[in-house]
Design a protein around this nucleic acid. Structure first.
Lengths: 140, 140, 140, 140
DNA sequence: GTGGTCTAGACCACT
DNA sequence: GTGGTCTAGACCACA
């Protein structure tokens, strides 16, 4: 344990999300899929900034977000580590967030001329793509 | 025809979306659900601004968005009216936007502890709610 | 790549078009002629406003238009960049807009005493001028 | 001569032009094509307003424009009549206007993905449609 | 530094 | 009355 990771995140300029959000989402995803197991050390702020060719402040902001969300924890002088998973949100809160996300999504696609089934198909495809990668331990 | 509408929009200050976006989404939804049938006159810029207690320019910006999206059209000196629906975007562009929306949505719900099927169920529910209300009943 | 541009736009007060439209047209033309290749950074909102001696909001509005039209895209905190060209509008919509433009044009020139062929000649000249400059020479 | 006309103008709500401009253009066109020969009496302001279902002030404004342009002339107490044609613009002025119109037109269609020849074809079609109707005396 | 949003108030063209 | 444009100045999030 306590491996040192090199996260695989891609910054997409055309993405609607700001860069720091892409980092947060990317790392959250890698933790969720098991690519970053508990206890793994995240790359340093400067290191990741260099790797992604972005400003160090942006990485720092992303790490701050992850810390607030309880997904990673800092150990003084050692760096950031993937934290023990814990139920962060109440069921009620989770349902609320799902609802907000669903409403936002529907609002965005409502004016596109797609059939309900086609939209669902796309969502299913994207969701199952995540489930099919539960853990990916094999790599350098 | 050419009814005068009184849109039912609520501006939520805690909302992540800016005010003008809330208006755009709100009216887009009312058009999608048929609450605002084709030909309906939207409330005036100044009137809606007064009603929502916001600046008139903010409403004007929202109305501009709706006009660009082809959902409403202005008749000089008369006001804005709900336009005939038409396919504005190329299929390619529509697919692109669907993809962006799907990715954004999946990113938001992926870390919530819901099963794929439950999520899909919610999306389906929200989508079919639109389809089932092609045109609203006539009101005063 | 990712050159920084200095657009050459002149604001004409006597022009029938509003200022923001003149900016949109000017930049659209520079993109069409290849003077602003893909990836070029546009001047900042405040910078261009200063250069043209107009209000920053007016430039922002013009930039917003260009963004909606898909000609440029913003990268948060970095600025606006000339986007990859793509077909945004459906064929139907494109035909509709061509028709509107043609009708407007014909209406404007019909009462002038020019022969049809002379008018066509002028239009052809102006159109081919664009086609013959797919990409401009590289500058500093 | 001195027939009383009933102009055939259609007010198109989706048109970009304001209503009074549509009237001016429409009548100018009917005069150019000979549908309204010299000496013809135009419908009264109120009459045309009723016919077109628009505000009388709008018709009055259009008639004012036509009068200023010298296309019609008012005879005190009798109404408006189509005036003798006369060269209103110098050649230089005409060329200037043609150029402005061409530039505006090209700018509008430049971002649409049409071939030069297709655009020219449409323009030619619209222009010849006018020429082919030099006079249309036969009607009620 | 960048763009994006909002307010406040003015002026214009059109109906 | 209507929407559209412009200015001036403020605040925010992001890099």
């Amino acid at each position: 344990m306590s491996n040192i990771s090199n996260v695989k995140i891609q910054i997409v300029t055309g993405d609607a999300r700001p860069i720091f959000k892409q980092i947060v989402d990317g790392i959250r995803m890698e933790i969720a899929t098991g690519e970053l197991p508990v206890g793994t050390k995240l790359p340093s702020v400067r290191g990741l900034a260099m790797q992604l060719m972005i400003n160090a402040n942006t990485v720092a902001k992303a790490y701050g977000e992850l810390t607030v969300q309880g997904l990673v924890e800092s150990r003084q002088g050692l760096g950031l580590f993937v934290a023990e998973p814990r139920q962060l949100l109440s069921e009620e809160e989770q349902k609320k967030r799902l609802n907000i996300a669903v409403n936002g999504f529907v609002n965005e696609v409502a004016y596109l001329e797609f059939k309900t089934e086609d939209i669902l198909q796309e969502v299913r495809k994207a969701l199952t793509k995540l489930d099919s990668t539960p853990n990916a331990d094999d790599r350098d």
